[in-house]
Amino acid sequence: MSSKHMLIIDPQNDFCDLPPSYWAVDPLSKTGARLQPSLPIVGAHADMQRLARFVERAANSLDRITVTLDSHLGVSIERPSMWLAQDGGELPAFTPVRAQDVQQGRYRVRHSAFKTIVMDYLLALEQQGRFTHMVWPAHCEVGTWGHQVHADILRALHGWEAMSGIPVAKVLKGMSPYTEHYSALVAEVPDVADPASQLNQTLLNSLEASDMVIVGGEAASHCVRCTLEHIVQYGRDGDLSRYVLLEDCVSVISGFEDDYQIFLQQAKKQGLRLSTSTQLLAELQ
């Protein structure tokens, strides 16, 4: 009997365009203000609801579930807390930063002691040619409401655990403050001084031990894409023939649609199979 592994990538509140009924009350607010997602992706809330229904209805067919969690510190290279604009003000979110910008003083590293390691990262990232470094809104800080798993997904995971008696594996990524870490497997530029940024061989082995890996989560253009690319790069088979991407359970960050389509074309050549959650559910049942 073939084994099936569900890989859910970053199903967290900060990435979901949640309706107000899903917002949490800010306990520090004197007016009862609600906590809202800081980096919502259009369509992600509906993605997570479909994905939760899939997990609930396909529960008997799933042998293992792994959930990755984007997990950041308060000061980190991908958020405004690391950066200053030329005039000394805070660098706005959604600002792309290149090594040349720092070299010419257009943008500055807030703490000068970190400039060398940040420059090394920017130069290495640009040499790879995969991404330009982006300053994102502060998101998924460990311990915050935004870091938590979407409520419908959490309910589905608890139900699967109760049915199977197997714990859902949780994989944190992004704790290294000096490198971006989209992929579930390895940071964009691994930090030699930080094992958490280096290849997660345990996770890779777990995925490769399964006959089918079903993938959903956010964002398709970044964390989902990079995970699948690194599976090809580091996996023993060098392809995606055992992977099924639930295309109705992922969404793209606005502005990155073309990059995602280019990725999909290549991934399908490498064996990636696309399916909707309803189509795959009917097949499994």
Rank of each mutant, 00 (worst) to 15 (best):
Q270H: 08
G105N: 07
E247T: 14
Q103S: 13
Q12F: 01
G159A: 14
V252L: 06
L240M: 08
G255A: 10
I153V: 15
R53K: 12
P167I: 04
V252Y: 00
R225K: 15
A99W: 10
D14P: 01
V213W: 06
T68Q: 05
V142M: 12
A151S: 12
V189I: 15
S38K: 08
V186L: 11
M119W: 03
D239E: 13
Q285I: 10
R155P: 01
T179W: 05
L274C: 15
S206Y: 00
G271L: 09
A124C: 07
T68H: 04
A193K: 09
Q285A: 11
R34I: 05
Y234H: 15
H133I: 06
A209E: 14
C249V: 03
M82R: 03
S183H: 03
L62Y: 00
T227P: 06
A85N: 10
Y121W: 05
A184C: 10
V135I: 10
R242M: 05
D191F: 00
Q127R: 13
F54C: 10
K170W: 03
G88R: 08
H147S: 12
A219Q: 07
S275D: 11
P190S: 11
Q285S: 15
W23Q: 13
V135R: 00
L228T: 01
Q49F: 03
F256H: 14
R106A: 13
G88H: 09
P27E: 13
I8L: 12
M163Y: 07
V244I: 15
V142S: 06
A184G: 13
I77Y: 02
M119E: 14
K30V: 10
V42G: 05
I117T: 11
